[in-house]
Amino acid sequence: MRIFIEKDYDAMSRRMAQIIAAEITHNPACVLGLATGSTPEGAYKYLVDWHKQGCLSFQDVLSVNLDEYVGLAPTHDQSYRYFMQSNLFDHVDIVPENTRVPDGLTKDPAAFCAEYDAYIRSLGYVDLQLLGIGRNGHIGFNEPGDCFVKETHVVDLAESTIDANARFFATRDDVPKQAISMGIGAIMGAKKVLLAASGAEKADAILGSICGAITPHCPGSILQLHPNVAVVVDEVAGSKLKAAGVSVCG
């Protein structure tokens, strides 16, 4: 596991973007597992800028997203499809048909989840999986629980997750209570994983994921078993790693 502690959010975002861009440059037809939220937003801005400068092409890239809220249409401004279009897809040359985001309006969630997993397997899993992490250690929307759920599934969101996401909605009551999330099996099947976090409120989750017991009560801890993980955090998110004496990359 390689750990990078950057001085601030912008430096963290640039490091994330460099890792993603290097993957695309090395393998122009790579499969990217993508995430949403405030953590990757800065990295996506760097990728868009480099594309506009003619340094990076997404023409042959395939993408699969981690998750989507149940009940939100792709056009809803808080849906994750909308986020991806607004922050990345609409600004680069990725082929629309090559992008996949879970369908929050599916009438048959079980069938959809099985099809999503089958599609990911058909790609040979993803080449680089981008992950944020929740304050409670969730990755994707795999919430803390008694077991790791392998398959893509419908998740009942934890109260802490709803609280954390309420800032994006008019009221807390407007936050969806469920989401479709890629399961731990697909995440761990990725050839490489890029885990990122920013802010002091993520410090405990990062420490637990990297140094704590491997337990479904901190879903991010499963990444300790993955052979190729890069962790990129800003100084405050990584503060407890430094205090614990964890080795970091220069």
Rank of each mutant, 00 (worst) to 15 (best):
D60C: 07
N27F: 01
T25Y: 04
A21F: 05
T39M: 11
M12S: 03
A11K: 14
Q59P: 00
F58L: 10
L34E: 08
Q53T: 04
E41W: 06
A11L: 04
K7I: 11
E41S: 14
T25N: 06
V61N: 13
P40M: 12
S57A: 05
L32V: 09
M12H: 01
K45C: 01
L56S: 08
V48L: 13
Y46D: 00
C30G: 12
M16Y: 02
D60H: 12
D60A: 10
K45S: 13
F58Q: 06
L62V: 12
M12E: 01
L56C: 13
L62W: 03
V48E: 14
A43T: 02
H51L: 09
D49A: 11
S13F: 02
A35Q: 10
A22H: 03
Y44R: 02
S13D: 01
V61L: 12
T25D: 03
A11N: 11
I24S: 05
A21E: 13
A22Y: 00
K7R: 09
D8K: 12
D60I: 01
F58N: 07
G37P: 04
K52E: 15
Y9G: 08
E41M: 11
D49L: 06
Y9C: 07
W50V: 07
S38A: 15
S38Y: 11
G37Y: 09
I20Y: 09
Q59V: 02
I19C: 06
A17K: 00
C55N: 14
H51R: 08
I19W: 10
T25M: 08
H51F: 12
Q53G: 12
A17L: 05
D10I: 08
M12L: 11
A43F: 05
